[in-house]
Design a protein around this nucleic acid. Structure first.
Length: 458
RNA sequence: GCCUCAAUAGCUCAGUUGGUUAGAGCACAUGACUGUUAAUCAUGGGGUCCGAGGUUCGAGUCCUCGUUGAGGCGCCA
């Protein structure tokens, strides 16, 4: 008999009524009574569990089945029975239950509430809980939705290099990559290192994506990103996944439109494909989550300039620890106020040129750059992007202003010499998107095995 | 990197002003129970009170240092 999955049973329960079923999975809970008992079985194919009923009359090994502990893997055959008057729409009346892999007495995942911290310490087991099962299925579905969104519009998926010798990306501290024996090397000579120069893990694939955009028109990257900052917050990790689309013959408005369309596409797809998971988050993680996301789907994102943002903050009847000032960066408390004030995602555009990266296009006021940050509650800066400086003379001027060593940027400047055009792009942290749509407020709980300062277990 | 807080049974926690043998619920084991669904009930086993030092007649409790974790800020996606 071909094995069924729990998901298939839920999809076809009416047709399968009274049919013999074979399937395998893991025991979430086992409630044994004198002459019968109930097993909640999850096989990983969907959020729901399947209730298996076993009875002493029909099962020779009834006494053994009663003792099967949570976490054990089992194989069962039985008859599907519709049960419209109970909590679950159907169940399986077992004709055989076989223990495949026992779960020892000290199994950490019990049918009870655990703290997120404890489950983080058990990252190899935590996806067996309702919460993390839902989180990591959603992470997968969001990733797929992102690919669909771009591929359906003929964007080319570019695998940006993970090792780079360019130090000019300017997006943060980098992890060094070397084959030198650092325990034995006293004076470091990079000419003797693997790449004959100092190499690091990439903090962004953007510069390389620009090169591909100027051949394929529209491209995106989607891959791991590494940041070595000693950053201890709920929204930072040392290893995370980033999506970086880059679009040619496009300006900042096109860029913002793309970001907004993408976010709405992801949310709509999630509602369609993960209704059980979204119900669970709405009920147990963030009350009102679904309504919040529904509202995002049905409204246009707000846009304000950096100057207007500071004005709003200065007029606010609120004591900020960091006083908002024109020409200066927004502090976390400012971002939080703005998202609350606008009650939804808000683009902040036209940032002072000195606090943004060298490659961002200078606006006609010569004071601001065509940059945008999309702020959302919980995840903070969900994505950030800009129109790129396509004018070679302006770019070189900006590189000088930032005192950047541009010897590694020759190829990047070439892109302005040979068929350059206006282009734009943004970078979105996948984890921040997953946080936003699930209501989970710690990035360590949306990464399969999170890497943060002092933590590289598993 | 800075600041604040925390660490007691496998898990979640209580533990009074420093005072006898450190408790509860869940989990686990044994038993009871004819429809449970975080089942229920009874009985039982289970402790390096984070580590090292110190104060004291006496430390889970007070002090110092360390480790780990959490929250906030900074940096960023």
């Amino acid at each position: 008999m071909k094995a069924k999955t729990v998901k298939e049973l839920y999809l076809d329960s009416k047709e399968l009524d009274q049919k013999q079923i074979y399937l395998a999975g893991w025991v979430r809970n086992n409630r044994a009574q004198k002459a019968f008992g109930f097993i909640d079985l999850n096989d990983g194919t969907c959020f729901e569990t399947l209730q298996v009923v076993y009875e002493s009359e029909t099962l020779e090994n009834f006494k053994d089945i009663q003792k099967i502990r949570a976490g054990s893997s089992i194989e069962i055959t039985g008859v599907l029975v519709l049960t419209p008057n109970t909590k679950q729409p159907f169940e399986i009346k077992a004709t055989s239950v076989t223990l495949i892999g026992d779960s020892l007495e000290d199994y950490p995942i019990q049918p009870k509430r655990h703290t997120r911290e404890f489950l983080r310490d058990n990252a190899h087991l935590r996806m067996r809980t309702n919460l993390f099962n839902a989180v990591f299925r959603v992470r997968s579905v969001v990733s797929h939705a992102i690919h669909k969104f771009f591929q359906d519009q003929d964007f080319v998926y570019v695998h940006a290099p993970i090792i780079t010798t360019s130090d000019a990306e300017g997006a943060g501290e980098m992890f060094q990559v070397t084959t030198l024996d650092i325990e034995k090397t006293k004076e470091i000579d990079y000419l003797k290192d693997f790449f004959t120069k100092k190499a690091n893990l990439s903090v962004s694939g953007q510069l390389q994506a620009e090169a591909y955009a100027l051949a394929f028109k529209n491209v995106y990257t989607f891959g791991p990103t590494f940041r070595a900052e000693n950053s201890n917050t709920k929204i930072h990790a040392s290893e995370f996944w980033m999506i970086e689309p880059e679009i040619s013959f496009a300006d900042l408005n096109d860029d913002m439109k793309l970001a907004e369309d993408m976010i709405k596409y992801i949310i709509a797809d999630l509602f369609k494909r993960c209704p059980s998971e979204m119900d669970f988050f709405d009920k147990f993680v963030e009350k009102g989550l679904k309504q919040k996301l529904q509202k995002v789907l049905n409204s246009s994102f707000k846009t304000i300039t950096h100057k207007e943002a500071i004005d709003t903050l200065q007029k606010a009847n609120e004591e900020f620890e960091n006083k908002p000032k024109q020409g200066e960066d927004l502090a976390t408390e400012h971002e939080k106020y703005l998202t609350k004030y606008f009650d939804g995602p808000v683009f902040v555009i036209d940032w002072p040129k000195n606090i943004k990266a060298f490659y961002m296009r200078l606006n006609d006021d010569l004071e601001t750059v065509a940059a945008m940050d999309l702020l959302v509650p919980k995840a903070g800066e969900l994505l950030g992007g800009s129109q790129r400086e396509e004018r070679l003379d302006m770019l070189e001027k900006r590189i000088k202003e930032f005192s950047i060593d541009d010897k590694d940027l020759w190829w990047y400047k070439d892109l302005r010499k040979y068929g350059g055009c206006k282009h734009a792009g943004f970078g979105m942290g996948l984890e921040r998107m997953v946080m936003y749509v699930t209501g989970i407020d710690n990035i360590r709980d949306v990464l399969p095995f999170p890497r943060t300062p002092r933590n590289c277990e598993f």
